[in-house]
Design a protein around this nucleic acid. Structure first.
Lengths: 257, 257
DNA sequence: CGGGCTGTTGAATACATTCAAGCCCCGTGG
DNA sequence: CCACGGGGCTTGAATGTATTCAACAGCCCG
């Protein structure tokens, strides 16, 4: 515990390369560019504290965003993980996506000024918060900020291309393999271990997301394990033969090899 | 045929409310705001002609964008329709999305400066083209333009929320119903007839997109027809009981009722 | 120690795919 | 004008796969 050292998203000193389990450093955070614009070289010294919320703890199962609420801020995952979901007519939820450290949440609310989806923590987590109502404080640096925002949005558009590949896959085996690979890639993208990791979500959540039955997901994991492609112990996964998984998933072209 | 009247995306006179089959007027075009910034009140009179390509015809099966090419421009569908697809390792394609009049194509290429997906015309179509390399001509109006771009990107992020609902649906019936509803909604969004429309894509494309067999799509259409929910004649569809379709699809919360 | 939650495993059913055939629409060429 | 042929679409039975229902195992927490 440092005394008064800032724990904000951006000004973290680059030196401390020690990584605490699953916490992203600011350099690999989706808000990084925007934090820079907001904080570094800002006319007002502590401008960043006005706009970017410090690392806030979020308890497991706590909602960071509730669908239907007015849009006001976007969030970057600092540690932990989240799921977004829509609530269907019959009351149960359809999981739309998962979020991992470094990724941005709440972007979908911008255009209509209302959050269309809810966001809930899968485990004890923490986030940085970017308050849109205080953006006018940026003044002339707004243009820079907008550019960063455009970058973030287009990165996200690119990521979303994955989804149809995930879901459109013909059978459960391919879908499950693709799911694990996409997870691995997303971890790697933010410099987190990509071959040994903990699944933050329940089997139920995975099944919901993939449009499969819980039992099927279980069976697929067992099948992969019996093929020596991976090792599963509860929520802990180790990918042993990632190339074989790629072959099963049947994709290559997207996101390179 | 007007003599020299401009056929560009934006300055179309609002008066002509006559609609030619499936052509969107500029007011409901995704580029509208950006066109306004680029063209109206611009210091240089015909600045818009420099930046926004006039309505260009695209032949059926012609590629507007080829995956892997360097990013340079975004396109708005003026008339007709398109599909985006990724090419998989085994050579065949996975359809990622369809585009209809008023929607923007190529946004995914912005972040990496390379188009990740190909875009192909499903029928004889036309597009307006926005050239990013000439944006510097905008000068001080750049900020306004960026705001419009941010709006377009976040609208798209919001749209993409549909996809998991489409694909994540448990069975073929739900998926097909959701597909038709999303189609209907997208048409309505751009003031096109939303209950009677022509499917611009083949059954093969629909099946590929939904991750189903062609035959299954056929059977679902027949089933819906026998339930009096719709009427299908080849590629012509008329939705007769859209509420029942919504019940089958099982969604409500997203995109309102 | 017992209850609830999460995850796994097994057998029967329901479902989508596959393979195969036939239909329909439309354009081509006789 | 009609015959032919091809592509897109539909329809029918058999196979294979995922779901469902049910039971049980492991684990955390009281």
């Amino acid at each position: 515990m440092h005394t008064k050292e800032r724990d904000t998203c951006c000004p973290t000193p680059r030196g401390s390369s020690r990584r605490k389990s699953n916490v992203v450093e600011c350099e690999s955070c989706g808000l990084y560019g925007m934090c820079q614009v907001a904080g570094l070289d800002a006319p007002v010294p502590d401008l960043i504290d006005e706009i970017v919320g410090r690392r806030e703890p979020i308890a497991i199962n706590q909602n960071v965003i509730t669908a239907g609420m007015p849009f006001g801020e976007i969030y970057a995952v600092k540690s932990g993980s989240f799921k977004t979901y829509a609530t269907l007519a019959n009351g149960d939820q359809q999981i739309i996506d998962f979020y991992y450290p470094g990724e941005l949440m709440g972007l979908e609310g911008m255009s209509e000024r209302v959050y269309p989806l809810s966001v809930e923590a899968l485990e004890a987590s923490s986030v940085c918060r970017l308050d849109f109502s205080k953006l006018n404080l940026l003044g002339e640096r707004m243009g820079e900020f907008q550019q960063q925002l455009i970058l973030a949005l287009s990165r996200r558009a690119r990521q979303d291309q994955w989804v149809p590949l995930l879901m459109g896959a013909q059978n459960a085996e391919q879908r499950t393999a693709t799911f694990l690979l996409s997870l691995s890639d997303r971890f790697a993208e933010h410099d987190l271990p990509s071959l040994r990791f903990k699944l933050p979500m329940s089997r139920h959540d995975i099944a919901n997301y993939l449009g499969l039955a819980v039992e099927t997901v279980s069976r697929m994991f067992q099948r992969f394990q019996s093929m020596d492609l991976l090792e599963v112990h509860g929520r802990h996964v180790e990918l042993r033969d990632i190339d074989a998984l790629r072959v099963i998933a049947g994709l290559n072209s997207i996101n390179g090899s």
